[in-house]
Amino acid sequence: MTTVLAVANQKGGVAKTTTVASLAAALAALDQRVLVVDLDPQACLTFSLGHNPDKIERSVHDVLIGDAEAKEVLLDTAEGITLLPATIDLAGAEALLLMRPGREYALKRALATIRDDFDIVIVDCPPSLGVLTLNGLTAAESVLVPLQCETLAHRGVGQLLRTVEEVKQITNPDLDLLGALPTLYDARTTHSRDVLADVSDRYNLPVLSPAIPRTVRFAEASASGATVLAGRKNKGAQAYRELAENLLNYWTDGRKLETLSG
């Protein structure tokens, strides 16, 4: 059975794209066939996996509006991950989709033709709660919320959780909210720990283990067109490997998700 995971947070700068790329690479290293879908018009995921969005002729934009089949647009990456890329054209897809009936289901319909070729599909949702994010949540079986461990980071979490509940009521009743993933975490500060405790208590939201540490390796990896797992051993890569094992055990063996709280 193919698992589709949406990674969503309408706040930017929370390591959402880093999480998608690094988690995908870690799952691929565990012999999983992984597809990542870049739903962000900024195309940061596409760039971070070694492809120049400005030189891509067809993207997920063409797939969503019905001008191409998903299988015709897929790209390979150095990490062994398959990519459904984005370009700036995707910004126009939102307006086009708004005029169409069943607009929330466009991605789900597109993935139906290729999902059996993969074990895991990870969707990188844009930093908004528009129709593209609704497509990601409607197509997914589960959703993960990366959360920066800073005081203002959880502003908007309540709004995202309400959106998830609305999606469950209207387009995807089986959507499983896995919880928050702590990112940019500094274990040396009580501040980071206090933020996590506040999120867990305020929203009754599980906080997944392990917390992803703050490290310069992530920025270096993105700039080089590779994930943090491709370089030398580092604590960021190790954290994503542990997260991949945690999720894979949950999806394949039905084990309880390891959490820091909740």
Results as ranks from 00 to 15, higher is better:
D174K: 09
L205G: 04
S192L: 02
G136V: 11
H191Y: 12
E165T: 15
H191D: 12
A187V: 09
E150V: 01
Q159W: 03
L177E: 00
A197Y: 00
G156H: 11
P146A: 09
T171P: 03
G158W: 15
T183P: 15
T189A: 09
R188A: 11
L147R: 08
V167C: 05
L161W: 13
V164F: 12
D174H: 06
T171F: 11
D201W: 04
T151S: 00
P146W: 02
T151A: 02
G158Q: 14
P182I: 00
V164H: 11
G136Y: 07
L147N: 08
P173F: 06
Y203H: 15
R193H: 14
L152S: 10
T163V: 13
E150L: 00
L184T: 11
V199Q: 01
L137T: 09
D174R: 09
T171E: 07
T171C: 07
T190R: 14
L181Q: 13
I170M: 11
D201V: 12
N172W: 08
I170F: 12
P182N: 00
S200Q: 07
D174F: 00
L181W: 13
V157P: 05
R155I: 08
G156F: 10
D186R: 09
D194G: 08
D194T: 15
L181P: 14
R155S: 05
P206S: 14
P146T: 08
L205Q: 03
R193I: 06
P173W: 05
T151H: 00
L181F: 13
G179R: 06
E141I: 00
R193T: 11
Q148N: 05
L196E: 04
Q159H: 11
L184Y: 13
A153Q: 09
R193G: 07
A187E: 10
G136Q: 04
S142V: 01
H191T: 12
P206Q: 13
R193E: 11
A140E: 06
G158F: 15
L147C: 13
A139C: 05
V167P: 04
S142A: 14
A153K: 09
H191E: 13
T189F: 10
T163R: 00
L184D: 06
L147G: 05
D194M: 15
L137W: 07
R155G: 02
P173Y: 06
P173A: 04
E150I: 00
V157L: 15
A140H: 04
T138W: 10
L160A: 13
D174G: 05
D174S: 09
V167N: 07
R202W: 03
V167K: 06
R188I: 01
T189W: 10
D194P: 09
D198T: 07
L161N: 12
H191L: 15
V167E: 08
Q159K: 14
R155W: 03
T190A: 11
T138E: 14
P173M: 04
T189V: 10
S200E: 14
T171V: 07
R202I: 08
G136F: 09
A153C: 09
S192C: 14
